[in-house]
Simulated assay, not measured.
Amino acid sequence: MSKYIYSLLILFLCASCSTEKNEPSTTTTETVYFPPISGTTWETKTIASLGWKQDAVQPLLDYLALKNSKSFIVLVNGRIVMENYFNGHSATTNWYWASAGKTLTATLTGIAEQEGYLNTNNKVSDYIGAGWTSLPLAKENLITNKHLLAMTSGLEDINNGDAVDPASLTYKADAGTRWAYHNVYVKLQDVVAKATNQTWNTYFNTKLRDKIGMDGTWFQSGNNSVYASTTRSMARFGLLMSNKGKWKNTVVLNENYSNASANTSQNINLAYGYLWWLNGKASYHLPQSQLQFSGSIIPTAPNDMYMALGKNDQKIYIVPSKKMVVIRMGDAADNVNLALSDFDNILWQKINALY
C-alpha cells in the first residue's frame, strides 16, 4: 500500500510541475501599469520576460501583414509586449474604429448615468422627446436606453441598419423581444447630449478621452458617428475597460456598469453585452442575421474574452484571465467588410502560439 501511495504522490507532483510549466506568465500578480496621460512614454515587456515563444512572433507578424493590417498592439498588465505597424501606417496615424467605437458610446452612457444625468432603464423619449421613431407612441415608449445598449429595440432594419431618421425606424417587434444589430444605438449620443446639456464631443472629451490620455476625434460617416484615433489611443481605452473602468486611482466608469457591459445583456443573443461582443457563450447571433449559432464566436480564443468589433476588422480584444489587451487596425483582412470573419479564428491561433 505504501508503494502505491508513493507512486500516486510522484504522479501528483509531476502533474503539478507540468501545470506550472505550461501556465502562461500573464497570470502573475504584477501590478497593472498605466501610461502617463501625456507624452509618448509607455513601459514595455519583452517576449522573453513573459516566457513566451520568440519563434512564434514572426509567423504572427507575417499573417498580420498578409491580411492588410495597419497596426497591432498586445498589452499585458498594461505594458506593451508587441507594437507593430504595417503598410506605411505609423504610431501617429489616425485610423477609424468603425463599429468598434460603439463601445465608446456605451461607456459614455454609463458615465452619464453614474453622474446622475440619466437612467438607462428609462425610455429614450424621456430625453430626446417623442416622435424619434415612426412607431405608435405606446410602442415607442417601450424602448429604453438599455434596449439600445443591448440591440433589442425591436426596430426594423429597413436601411441595412444605417439610417436613424424617424421614417426609417419602423416597428418589427416589441422592445426587448428581438435582438437585431442596428445603428439606432447612435441615438444614445443624443440622449447623453440632451441629458448633460452639453455637446456629445465636449462631454466625451472631458469625461473619457482626456481622462485617459487618448487622442482622436468623431466624424460623420453617412448617418453614423465614427471615431478615429491612433492605435495607442485604442489601446488606452482597452486598458481602461480591462481594469473595470478604473484608470490608476481614478474611477472613470463604475465597476458595476463595466461588469454589465462585458456580460450578457439579454436572453436572446447570449454573446452580446452593452455594445460589446462576448466570447465563450453557449450560442450567438451575428450582425444582419436572426439565426442562432451554437458555441463560441471565436472558438480559438479564450472563453472569457470580450470584444469591440468593427467593419474591416477593427478589433479590441480584452482577455481578463491573461490580463491582456490586443488591438488590430487595418483594412479588411479578406476583402470582406464584416466585423467578424474567419480572420479572428486564425489570428487567435497565431496569438495562442506565442504562449
Rank of each mutant, 00 (worst) to 15 (best):
L148R: 02
T133R: 12
E115N: 14
A112K: 00
E140M: 00
T144S: 14
Y117T: 01
W97C: 05
N119F: 06
E140S: 00
H147G: 06
T103E: 06
N141G: 04
W97A: 03
K123Q: 11
N122E: 15
G131C: 05
A130P: 06
A138T: 14
I128N: 12
E140W: 00
L137N: 07
N122K: 13
T144G: 15
E115L: 07
L135A: 11
L137S: 13
L142Q: 12
G116H: 01
S99D: 00
A138Y: 07
N122H: 15
G101H: 01
L148M: 13
Y117K: 03
P136G: 11
A130K: 10
I111F: 02
I128T: 09
I111M: 03
I143A: 10
S134M: 06
A98D: 13
A106C: 00
T105F: 06
D126M: 15
H147L: 09
A112T: 01
Q114R: 01
G129L: 15
A98H: 12
Y127V: 04
V124Y: 02
K102E: 08
S90F: 00
T105L: 09
A112I: 01
P136Q: 12
A91T: 12
A98N: 03
T120V: 15
T107F: 07
N141Q: 13
I111Q: 00
N119Q: 07
E113D: 04
P136Y: 10
A138M: 12
T103F: 08
E115F: 10
G131W: 04
Q114T: 03
T103S: 15
W95R: 08
P136T: 08
A130W: 12
T107R: 03
E113G: 08
T109A: 13
L104T: 08
T105D: 09
P136E: 12
L118P: 06
K123W: 10
W97T: 05
A91W: 04
T92P: 01
T93H: 11
S99C: 04
T93E: 10
A138I: 13
K102P: 07
H147T: 02
E140I: 00
A106V: 01
H147Y: 14
S134W: 09
W132H: 07
N145T: 15
L137Q: 13
I143H: 09
Q114P: 06
W95E: 12
A91M: 09
D126Q: 14
G110H: 03
E115K: 15
T93Y: 04
N121G: 12
W97Q: 04
P136C: 07
T133N: 10
N145Q: 15
A106H: 05
G129F: 05
L135Q: 13
Y127E: 05
A106M: 01
L142N: 06
A106N: 01
L149N: 12
